[in-house]
Design a protein around this nucleic acid. Structure first.
Length: 581
DNA sequence: GCCGTTTTCGGCCCGACTGTTTTCAGTCG
């Protein structure tokens, strides 16, 4: 994405926080307007530096004021209104809003009445027991803020944890609650159900006619360290590994409305509710109902509610308030890929690679057992010194594959490789040797901090090789651990499309790479194909295809663009075409 | 600040929980 778009996004996000203090409310219309603008900028596929004020204004969520500010940034490198507010509310003050339970009103009050300018000031004021005397606050609030500060860092409002940590915890809790006799249905919602790569907290919704025992059981689960809040139908807890879990119980007849509401996103919900209001209805977590009579229009299932609102069912992965509702209204939702469509796996390792953990025979057998029609065994190339295969090893591996093939008549086994993209875009082996493979994935495994032109050139060089069928884990990121490389993704997508090179959707939960936001840009590129591949290093990891598919869906990727949903013949013909060029 | 097939002015999503209050403000999702 263009550098200017990122910079504008950062500035507008900062402006949103500053405006919360200026307006004294996070719900002020001006705050919400700029929140929408931030989202609109994030989804722009054009470089803002090249857009006129008029073009900017035409974007949904960007009006005259925001357009002017963006132009101002492009022309001067700064936005005067942001700078003004920045002086009025210095960063250490703004950051106090990160403390759970502390919002803009409280920050302004603390500053006005106690002279609090930063976290140290606040800690001192608490130590001197001065918060308890403020209007609207009290001893309990003072203690609550003190506890929240102690946990800060672990539980700041901005803290997000990688999905790979949240998913197993959520699955455990859902499994435990589903055992309760009082629980009719239970499901995790929130950003986890939308399959965001990082999760703020885990939202669980239960349908039950008898909430009390459910709430009791929830706060008493073995892994719960602290109960943050507890009402009749709603509770929040911390697990022993510091994840916040919110539980909500509703009547069975309200379950659809409840999971819709708690799945979000916030922006999606707001748009849905506006649509309800236009029809004289009201939508909340219990039902879609008539605003006057209260008569229920729909509530039992999400589909019924979407139907009533004149919308097709919108899959959770799309619910980000970035155009999916308009698309549903006009019956042009993407025909998303589903797990059952996947016919092949095109990135699989065995113990031939140094980091593989299951034998070649076991991996192939598992691929066959899972009903795949084709699989590419892709050991590392020789340039990955520790894990890669020498030429001699490649030939011996091929011989073993030939023997295995006889035992699996229904599975087409491709002899592939995962090549290493060197710092200058060079690959393992030589081109003649590479063309002996049936399928090659090329991926970055090192040198993550080059600048954008260097990284882009490096990938483009790899794409230019006739032997390279796909670019593996495009950015090389590890979610929550290592940022990906920075590159001109649009240039990569255009060239990949033009050369018949696929973009891999890597299924590892800590990779999910290419990231969904890049996939949303990629899917707009005519002729670009994707492959959803597990990059499995053990037989159990072939099932990770579930996660890759969900990430692809989040990226609005359609089934038709995913090459490994195609029949064997169509896929093989397509893959061979590039290798002949 | 943004927006409009009811609108260019007058709206803007909705409710639980907490802690402070005696009817509500702030925060959160």
């Amino acid at each position: 994405m263009a550098e200017a778009n990122r910079a504008v996004g950062r500035l507008l996000r900062e402006y949103v926080d500053l405006l919360k203090l200026e307006e004294g409310s996070a719900q002020a219309f001006r705050v919400r307007a700029y929140e929408r603008a931030v989202a609109a900028v994030a989804e722009l596929t054009r470089d803002v530096a090249g857009m006129t004020a008029g073009e900017l204004k035409a974007v949904d969520g960007i009006g005259a004021s925001t357009a002017k500010k963006i132009r101002e940034y492009v022309e001067t490198g700064a936005i005067a209104d942001v700078e003004t507010l920045r002086e009025k509310y210095p960063r250490p003050l703004v950051e106090l809003m990160q403390i759970p339970g502390v919002g803009p009103k409280t920050v302004v009050q603390l500053r006005r009445e106690l002279g609090v300018e930063n976290l140290d000031d606040l800690k001192q004021a608490i130590a001197e027991e001065r918060l308890r005397d403020l209007a609207g606050l009290g001893v309990r609030t003072e203690e609550k803020i003190a506890r929240a500060i102690e946990r800060l860092g672990l539980h700041s409002k901005e803290r997000r944890i990688p999905i790979i940590r949240a998913l197993p915890v959520a699955a455990d809790i859902v499994a435990a609650l589903s055992q309760l006799p009082a629980v009719r249905r239970v499901e995790y919602c929130g950003s986890l159900r939308r399959f965001r790569e990082t999760i703020g907290d885990i939202d669980v919704v239960v349908a039950s006619g008898d909430p009390a025992p459910v709430m009791d059981a929830f706060v008493g689960l073995p892994r719960i360290r602290e109960v943050l809040g507890r009402g009749d139908t709603k509770a929040s807890v911390l697990t022993d590994d510091d994840l916040q879990v919110d539980l909500r119980t509703v009547a069975p007849g309200e379950y659809g409305a409840a999971i819709l509401y708690f799945t979000g996103s916030k922006a999606h919900n707001i748009e849905l509710r506006q649509r309800a209001i236009e029809r004289g209805w009201i939508l909340n977590e219990y039902a879609l109902a008539d605003a006057d009579s209260g008569e229920i229009v729909a509530s039992r299932t999400e589909k019924a509610i979407y139907d009533a609102l004149g919308l097709g069912f919108i899959p959770p992965e799309l619910r980000e308030g970035i155009g999916e509702i308009a698309a549903a209204a006009e019956d042009r939702l993407p025909r998303l890929v589903e797990e059952r469509h996947i016919r092949g796996d095109l990135h699989v390792h065995s113990t031939w690679s140094g980091d593989g953990r299951s034998s070649l025979a076991d991996m192939v057998a598992e691929a066959a057992r899972r009903g795949l029609q084709y699989v590419a065994m892709t050991e590392h190339g020789e340039n990955l010194a520790i894990n890669g295969l020498t030429r001699d090893e490649v030939r011996r591996e091929r011989a073993e594959l030939d023997e295995l093939a006889a035992g699996h008549p229904d599975l087409t086994i491709l002899h592939g490789a995962e090549l290493n993209i060197g710092p200058d875009g060079g690959l393992d082996y030589d081109e003649d040797f590479l063309l002996e493979f049936d399928w090659c994935v090329a991926s970055v495994h090192s040198h993550f901090d080059f600048d954008v032109p260097t990284q882009t050139e490096r990938i483009l060089r790899a794409i230019a090789s006739p032997a390279v069928n796909a670019i593996g884990h495009l950015t090389g990121r590890r979610i929550g651990k290592r940022p990906g490389i920075e590159l001109d993704a649009d240039a990569v997508f255009e060239t990949a499309a033009a050369t018949g090179t696929a973009i891999e959707v890597n299924c590892h939960l800590d990779r999910l790479d290419a990231p969904a936001d890049l996939l949303r840009r990629a899917r707009l590129v005519d002729g670009l194909r994707f492959v959803i591949s597990t990059d499995a290093h053990h037989t159990t990891e072939l099932s990770n295809v579930t996660w890759g598919v969900r990430n692809a869906r989040r990226g609005w990727v359609e089934r038709a663009a995913v090459a490994n949903t195609w029949t064997r013949d169509r896929f093989l013909k397509w893959a061979a075409a590039k290798r002949r060029t």
